[in-house]
């Protein structure tokens, strides 16, 4: 019974961390992605600006763990930030790509309706980019889930990643296997939940997910 409660608590900690990090990544990724898309072409195509936007996404989230612990210490905030680092890039990149690939006829029609400024971003570019933004969120959630488990394995006091390490040290291979199954199951359920949410938010999207 105590074991079961412990497993449940660890699951809840891991889920809470991944959701917090991913939500932060969604907000920041969409905002910065949209802002980048409306920059003048001269600035957008500048190599230094491009480098500043693109380079930080190449180090994997695990490589950031020592830096994050050094700056924020061991705790919830560090876990959120590690998930954020993993989830941000896919959301940001897909938002930017989605905004850039909005058909010209839609942009022109909006201009003819005199939709400008923040309204143009909020009412035209954002909804038009949503299917691709959701692709980014799906990838971000998967990366974030992997990142939080890795972070817990290295520096956690709770969570499924920490539980795997603890069970390995205690030679409790049955519980270690259970942790692995739970990581797979929860990851799958989070992914399915997101697809369900996408169907509710984007009933007009032509994309069919099997």
């Amino acid at each position: 019974m105590q074991n079961l409660l412990g497993i449940l608590v660890n699951c809840m900690f891991s889920i809470e961390r991944v959701l917090m990090g991913v939500i932060m990544a969604i907000i920041a990724g969409i905002f910065i992605g949209l802002i980048r898309s409306i920059l003048p072409y001269k600035i957008k195509s500048n190599k230094i600006i491009k480098f500043l936007f693109e380079a930080p996404k190449f180090p994997p989230p695990i490589a950031w763990i020592p830096f994050v612990i050094l700056i924020f210490g061991i705790g919830e905030l560090s876990a959120w930030i590690i998930v954020f680092i993993g989830a941000f890039s896919p959301v940001f990149t897909n938002t930017y790509e989605g905004a850039e690939s909005v058909p010209l006829v839609i942009k022109n029609t909006a201009c003819s309706m005199e939709i400008q400024g923040y309204k143009y971003l909020w009412l035209i570019i954002l909804p038009a980019s949503l299917p691709q933004i959701f692709t980014g969120i799906r990838i971000g959630l998967s990366v974030g889930w992997m990142a939080v488990i890795a972070a817990e394995m290295i520096s956690g006091q709770t969570g499924l990643g920490y539980s795997i390490q603890l069970n390995r040290l205690n030679l409790q291979y049955d519980l270690m296997t259970l942790d692995m199954i739970l990581i797979g199951l929860i990851g799958f359920l989070l992914f399915e939940g997101l697809i369900y949410l996408e169907r509710i938010i984007l009933p007009w999207s032509e994309r069919t997910i099997i």
Binding site: V105, T109, E114, S205
Partner: peptide, 18 residues
Amino acid sequence: RPSKEIFLVHQSTDLFPW
């Protein structure tokens, strides 16, 4: 200067899918 004064309905669909 695009404006509401002259409105163009394009060859391809220009409806907002959302």
